[in-house]
């Protein structure tokens, strides 16, 4: 299957600041890719280059078989900018009607689109009176116009309440099932975890990790934490000299491979142990592992 989006060795420098260096990425039809990275990592820059809004200095970008910003690419791509803004004097429905006309779609679909994002109640009010989350929903509604082959969504869930976030991801599931490719950036790791097929981590403009969450976990090989509650503290402490007593529990860490051996040793202590809790590395741990490992 030809990818919807291909980046090869993409490089971008802003007046001396290296925003992206040699980023390569492919997104296949129907694939949902999450772009993670610290503030200033280059996520928005990457997206603007894909949309043809800003030029790049090196590498190659192919969007639905065409150059970024070309008529073909723009016709096939939907965008939701971070901090999306609209003219405050227009109503939600007028704004969406306008965007529908620009894509050559029938403007009468505007109400239905606003209903899909749960905004039909306020559709006839001026956007100037909307809350941040409501503006974000207008942004989502315009990204659903037509049948885009590629959706580029910059922090799409920022400003949305938890229920709306869930609704938003189920909208995406539907689009991906119909074959649309989705590239979204986010700072909310937990929601990205369940709802995307692949995670790409940028750090200081470099792609530092890429893969499904399970793959990234394996790559990171972060230690597992064990919490042991002892009945006979002295006996357990003697058996686990590395463990540290915190809040009444003995805490120790070990590598993934050593986990089973350590557990066997602890269960071997019999009645001296009251309970064991195994904590896998958290998403945050994994994320900071990848986004720090170069230089910081």
């Amino acid at each position: 299957m030809t990818p919807t989006l291909t980046l090869k060795q993409l490089t971008k420098t802003y007046a001396g600041v290296r925003a992206l260096s040699e980023v390569s990425l492919r997104v296949a039809p129907g694939e949902r890719v999450a772009l993670l990275g610290h503030n200033g990592a280059g996520k928005s820059t990457l997206m603007k280059i894909i949309l043809g809004l800003i030029p790049h200095d090196g590498g190659e970008v192919v969007v639905t078989g065409a150059a970024p910003g070309s008529a073909t690419a723009r016709g096939n791509t939907a965008y939701l900018p971070e901090n999306v803004a609209f003219h405050p004097a227009l109503t939600g429905v007028e704004q969406i009607r306008y965007y529908l006309s620009l894509r050559g779609e029938n403007p009468s679909q505007a109400m239905a689109l606003l209903e899909r994002v749960g905004l039909h109640g306020a559709a006839k009010r001026r956007i100037g009176t909307y809350s941040k989350g409501m503006r974000q929903r207008v942004g989502l509604a315009q990204a659903l116009i037509g049948k885009p082959k590629l959706l580029v969504l910059d922090e799409p869930t920022s400003g949305l309440d938890p229920v709306s976030r869930r609704d938003f991801y189920s909208l995406l599931d539907g689009l991906a099932a119909d074959g649309a490719s989705i590239l979204l950036s986010s700072h909310a790791l937990t929601e990205v975890e369940a709802r995307t097929d692949r995670i790409v981590i940028l750090s200081k403009g470099q792609l530092v990790a890429e893969g499904s969450l399970a793959e990234l976990r394996r790559q990171a090989a972060l230690p597992v934490t064990l919490h042991v509650i002892a009945r006979d503290l002295a006996a357990v402490q003697a058996a686990l000299p590395d463990a540290v007593l915190t809040d009444g529990a003995l805490v120790l860490t070990c590598s993934q491979e050593a986990k089973l051996a350590v557990l066997t040793r602890i269960t071997g202590l019999g009645d001296a142990v009251a309970d064991i809790e195994v904590l896998p590395p958290s998403l945050e741990d994994m994320y900071s592992h990848f986004s720090r490992r170069d230089g910081q």
Binding site: K48, L51, G52, L53, A71, R74, G75, T77, A78, Y79, P81, N83, V84, A85, F86, H87, Y99, L102, R103, G104, G139, Q142
Partner: peptide, 10 residues
Amino acid sequence: GTLPLLLTYP
């Protein structure tokens, strides 16, 4: 900040 979105339209 309305320009970037407009310019991604055909």
